[in-house]
C-alpha cells in the first residue's frame, strides 16, 4: 500500500523534496557558521544562484520536452565575447544586440534539430563546436576587458541594495514571466504534453516542431541574459568563460527535480536547484573544501538527482 501512495504523490514530491533540501541546507550552514548569514555572503550566494538560474530557465524548457542543450557553455563564451566587444564599441546598444544574437543561436539549434531530425544532444554538441570556434575567432583567442569609459553601461546591474542587485531583480522578473509562460500558455501546456507523450500530442493536432523550436530559442535567449549577468560581474570575457558553466547548469535543472525523461518539473524547480547548488558551493568554500574536489560533489549530485527523477518506464533500454 505504502508504495502506491508514494507513486501517486510523485509529482508533488518533486516540488517538495528540493524545497526541503534548500531549507535544510540553509539551516545547517546558518548554524555551523555565523558568517553565513552575513550581508556579503548572502549577496554572494544570490549572485551565484541568479546566474545559474537564468541560464537554467531555458534549459528547463528544453529538458521538459525531453531534449537536452549541451551548447550552453559554448554559447556563454560566444555571447559574453560579443557582448563585451559591442559594449566597448557601442555602449547600451550592446543589450538589444546580444539578445537578438542569443535568440538567433537558440533558433539555429532548433532549426537544425527540426530539419535533420537527429538527437538533440548531437545537434547541440556539434553546434557547441561551431560556437566555440566563433568565440575564439572573435576574441583572438584571448580575454577581452571592458574599456573603462563604458563602465557605467554595466555597473548599474551590480549596484547593491542590501544583498540585492539589479541582476537579481532580472532573475525575479524572469522567474515570474516564465512561470506564467510555463503554466498558463498554450505553448507551456504543449511543452508538458510533448514531454509526456510526443505521439499523443502530435495526434491531438498540436504543433510539435514549433514547440521544440521555441524551447531551444528560449534556451538561447536565457543564455544571452545570463551572459549579460556574467559580464556585469566579471567585466571581461574569454573563450574559456563558458564551458565550466555547462555541468553546473545541467546540475541546477536536474537537482531541482526536473526529469530528464521529460514532462516533470519546471522553472520553480530550477529556482530551488540554483539555490541548492549555490548554498552547497558556498558552504563547501566556507568549510574549506578544495575547489579541485568540488566537481566530484557536483558530478555525484547530478547522477543522484537524475536517478531519482528519471521515469525509467519511458526508456526501454539504457544506453
Amino acid at each position: 500500500m505504502k508504495k502506491i501512495q508514494f507513486k501517486k504523490s510523485n509529482i508533488d514530491l518533486t516540488k517538495l523534496l528540493p524545497l526541503v533540501a534548500v531549507i535544510t541546507l540553509f539551516t545547517f550552514f546558518s548554524l555551523r557558521n555565523s558568517q553565513f548569514l552575513g550581508l556579503y555572503n548572502i549577496g554572494n550566494i544570490l549572485d551565484f544562484a541568479n546566474t545559474y538560474f537564468i541560464a537554467g530557465i531555458g534549459l528547463t524548457f528544453v529538458i521538459l520536452i525531453g531534449s537536452i542543450d549541451l551548447s550552453i557553455g559554448a554559447m556563454i563564451s560566444l555571447d559574453t565575447i560579443i557582448f563585451i566587444i559591442m559594449i566597448n564599441a557601442l555602449g547600451f546598444w550592446a543589450y538589444p544586440i546580444i539578445i537578438v544574437i542569443g535568440i538567433a543561436l537558440g533558433l539555429f539549434n532548433g532549426v537544425v534539430l527540426m530539419r535533420l531530425k537527429i538527437p538533440s544532444f548531437i545537434v547541440t554538441l556539434g553546434s557547441s563546436g561551431i560556437f566555440m570556434s566563433l568565440a575564439l575567432i572573435f576574441s583572438g583567442a584571448g580575454p577581452i576587458g571592458l574599456v573603462p569609459k563604458q563602465l557605467h553601461t554595466l555597473s548599474f546591474l551590480t549596484a547593491r541594495i542590501g544583498p540585492f542587485t539589479v541582476n537579481h531583480l532580472l532573475g525575479l522578473i524572469l522567474f515570474i514571466v516564465f512561470q506564467i509562460i510555463q503554466n498558463k500558455t498554450v505553448f507551456g501546456k504543449t511543452v508538458y504534453a510533448v514531454g509526456h507523450s510526443e505521439v499523443t500530442t502530435k495526434l491531438s493536432g498540436l504543433p510539435i516542431m514549433r514547440t521544440k523550436l521555441i524551447s531551444f530559442t528560449i534556451s538561447g535567449l536565457c543564455t544571452a541574459l545570463a551572459s549579460i549577468v556574467i559580464v556585469s560581474i566579471m567585466l571581461s570575457a574569454a573563450p574559456s568563460t563558458g564551458p565550466p558553466y555547462m555541468l553546473l547548469i545541467i546540475a541546477t535543472v536536474v537537482v531541482g527535480g526536473t526529469s530528464l525523461s521529460g514532462g516533470i518539473g519546471g522553472v520553480y524547480n530550477t529556482l530551488l536547484g540554483s539555490l541548492l547548488l549555490s548554498m552547497l558551493r558556498n558552504g563547501m568554500n566556507v568549510i574549506g573544501i578544495n575547489i579541485y574536489y568540488q566537481q566530484i560533489i557536483y558530478g555525484a549530485i547530478i547522477i543522484a538527482a537524475v536517478s531519482l527523477t528519471l521515469d525509467r518506464s519511458k526508456i526501454k533500454i539504457v544506453k
Partner: peptide
C-alpha cells in the same frame, strides 16, 4: 494508451488538448 492519451496527465488536461487555444482569456489558458 500510447497514442490517444497522455497517461501521466489528469483527465482535464487530456480532454482539453484539442481546444487549448479556444480556452484562452487574456492570452492565457
Amino acid at each position: 494508451r500510447n497514442e490517444g492519451l497522455i497517461l501521466n496527465l489528469p483527465i482535464f488536461e487530456n480532454i482539453t488538448l484539442t481546444v487549448l487555444k479556444k480556452l484562452k482569456s487574456h492570452g492565457m489558458v
